[in-house]
Design a protein around this nucleic acid. Structure first.
Lengths: 226, 226
DNA sequence: ATCAACGAGATTGTTGACAAGATGTTCGAT
DNA sequence: ATCGAACATCTTGTCAACAATCTCGTTGAT
């Protein structure tokens, strides 16, 4: 209590804590973040909090406006689509390279993930499916050896938490995405680079389609009454 | 001296100054940046300098190691290739979208750039060609309306200054890249999205080829201390 | 009731001094 | 001469107080 987190340690801790709070819905888009409050609740110094906020702003998760503090950035459907288009471009690259560069261990894990995904869908294990989905994307990127793409994909995903949440809840979504994921796995495992790129593109085109159809009339509607 | 640049203003100014110093070769990879010196020479406060350094580190132009300060990051040929692969992926996306979305004014400017490029090559006007090259890439991105891709492409280019310098100096390079640039222009102007993507890919594949053949044993060693 | 001006409180920005750690130098022992 | 320990200096990191600005409720005039 008496010694608050400071410097690099506190910075990392606070940034992670805010990222987590965002994922779990404790922070909502547009919400204001007050330095003193954060310092108090996370047991860090204001300096550490300030630096953490700067980091998150660089990741485009927050928006800092001078003299007015930090807010959780709102991502429009249009921007979410653009983000996903960029993800598509980079993941095509990764899938393609993974198809030629993945080692035996990685190919084996991919096969395992495919089998587990099938089972998760038939069992209705949505949480497990979601975790496998995440692992699949990670593994393809890792197998590609494309560090630069990995960093940029991480950055792209930062502001997307809200939409991932929304999409994952759509009924029938896993059943729809399963064949796409299996196609990516097949292509990478069999070393067919062009097919891997096409499969990744097809999958993300579908995500974009989902985003389009999730568009609500207006992100921030004028409320009926004040 | 009496009033030093501070806060957001100084931060921006110092960051720009360092970026410029890097482009013009005043700062070389591996070189150490001392906060007090920078504050002194740019007439900013140490606080402003610190924040500028953080920004540049976030852009992967500098590397900050705790308690040891900031250094100009060295980019290996391997990383330069990975960066260019990512550029390729994103510029394919932009070229493709530009082909369908560019307005008349933008298509007209593209045609003009194409004509000017031809002339610059026959005239041996290398500086002019380089400027046109940059404008071409900018314009394609702008016409695509892909703001997210634009931001990420900016970030990708940050650490590449050293290589751009090296490649542009290769004799016969403009003559080699001219037809590739013209192919991009033709495809975008005529609205052929797949061709635009292919042309962009071909151009950047060639840049990667150049990078591969430019590989030297060891890029640049840490310079003697200041 | 509406609006503008005002002001108290809240919040971010800035500063300068000091602490903590790294780097370089000197000097003695071998 | 070489190595290593003690020391001096340079550099970054931290902090607490203060300054500047914004927010929002209150007041008073129309």
């Amino acid at each position: 209590m008496t010694d608050r987190l400071t410097g690099a340690a506190g910075r990392q801790y606070v940034a992670d804590a805010i990222r987590y709070a965002l994922r779990s819905g404790d922070l909502v888009p547009g919400q204001r973040l007050v330095e003193n409050d954060l310092a108090e609740s996370y047991g860090a110094t204001r300096g550490a909090v300030r630096e953490a906020l700067q980091d998150l702003a660089a990741e485009e998760i927050l928006e800092i406006v001078p003299r007015r503090g930090a807010r959780v950035r709102t991502v429009s459907v249009e921007e979410a689509i653009q983000i996903t288009e960029c993800r598509s471009a980079l993941e095509q690259l990764c899938a393609q390279k993974a198809a030629t560069r993945a080692n035996e261990e990685q190919r084996a894990e991919l096969r395992r993930i495919g089998a587990d995904m099938r089972r998760a869908v038939t069992d209705g294990a949505w949480d497990a499916y979601s975790a496998l989905n995440q692992r699949l994307h990670e593994l393809v990127i890792e197998a590609s050896g494309q560090e630069v793409a990995r960093r940029h994909l991480d950055r792209l995903n930062g502001p997307m938490v809200r939409f991932q949440f929304r999409l994952a809840l759509r009924p029938g979504r896993p059943a729809q995405s399963l064949p796409q994921h299996l196609a990516i796995i097949d292509a990478v495992v069999s070393g067919d680079a062009p097919a891997a790129a096409r499969a990744a593109a097809a999958h993300l085109d579908d995500v974009i389609e989902q985003l389009r159809s999730s568009a609500v009339p207006s992100p921030t509607q004028a409320p009926p009454r004040a």
